[in-house]
């Protein structure tokens, strides 16, 4: 009985998420259309085609890989929300992981699904509100935003975030973590092409390698 209820809740999450995401997709596309109609302007189709060809293939490929990689970590509700509001690996996913760790629940359980969705929903709301405040207060805040003193602090957000989050997760699963961490260190230190702009592409690489390595350890009876 419990199993049936659980499934029906999950079904409703998928149904509602689908409706919300499709509605948001339509209204996002409506923005350039509405601007064009209001100001009686057509897009420059040649410029559009060139811009899309230069941008979309890589973004679409990364988007597909991100969907496959992140859904199992974010849960259902968290996925529908995160792929609308963005900033997944630098904000939404760490926020969900932290909430799941604190609550000591697994994202695959119903409790985990709820905790992850709550964390990501709150994070999305707070981010949106802070961005609204930033837009309203842009003029008075500009000296702060462009401060040379504070720049290093905001430049180092990811190392600061993943230092704290990493030590918590790696210490619990160090047997799984050793090989992928060593591999990534070697790759990032010795392959010049790998830098801040490619870390998003390397996340799926790290994930696939870690799964294969864990499977090997599991089969050998080490885990």
């Amino acid at each position: 009985m419990k199993n049936k209820k659980q499934l029906s809740y999950m079904d409703s999450v998928h149904r509602d998420g689908t409706v919300w995401n499709l509605v948001i997709m339509v209204i996002l596309m409506a923005f350039p259309v509405a601007v064009g109609l209001i100001f009686r302007a057509w897009p420059d189709w040649e410029g559009f085609a060139k811009g899309i060809l230069a941008t979309a293939p890589m973004y679409w490929a990364v988007g597909i890989v991100e969907v496959i990689t992140f859904i199992p970590m974010l849960g259902a509700g968290g996925s529908y929300l995160s792929f609308v509001t963005g900033n997944i690996s630098n904000l939404k996913l760490p926020c969900a992981i932290n909430a799941l760790e604190n609550a000591k629940v697994d994202v695959k359980s119903e409790e985990g699904e709820i905790v992850s969705t709550i964390a990501i929903a709150v994070s999305s709301i707070v981010t949106t509100v802070i961005i609204i405040l930033g837009v309203i207060l842009l003029a008075p805040l500009k000296p702060f935003m462009e401060s040379e003193t504070l720049k290093p602090a905001f430049d180092q957000l990811l190392p600061a975030l993943f230092g704290a989050l990493g030590v918590a997760l790696v210490s619990k699963s160090w047997k799984i973590a050793v090989a992928p961490v060593v591999l990534m260190l070697i790759l990032f230190i010795f392959v010049p092409a790998l830098d801040a702009s490619t870390v998003g592409i390397m996340v799926p690489v790290g994930v696939v390698f870690t799964i294969l390595f864990s499977r090997f350890l599991y089969k050998k009876g080490i885990l």
């Binding site: 990689t69 199992p72 970590m73 690996s89 996913l93 992981i97 697994d106 994202v107 695959k108 990811l158 190392p159 993943f162 230092g163 989050l165 990493g166 997760l169 790696v170 619990k172 699963s173 799984i176 973590a177 992928p180 961490v181 591999l183 990534m184 260190l185 790759l187 990032f188 230190i189 010795f190 010049p192 790998l194 830098d195 801040a196 870390v199 390397m202 996340v203 690489v205 790290g206 994930v207 696939v208 390698f209 870690t210 799964i211 390595f213 864990s214 499977r215 599991y218 885990l223």
Partner: peptide, 27 residues
């Protein structure tokens, strides 16, 4: 058991990429 290990592997895989990224300018 393997499902739980798989879940941990997803998190660790993501973390490992960011740990590597932190060292990208050490060279």
């Amino acid at each position: 058991k393997w499902s739980d290990i798989l879940q941990n592997s997803l998190f660790i895989g993501m973390i490992s990429a960011f740990v590597g990224y932190v060292f990208c300018d050490v060279s």
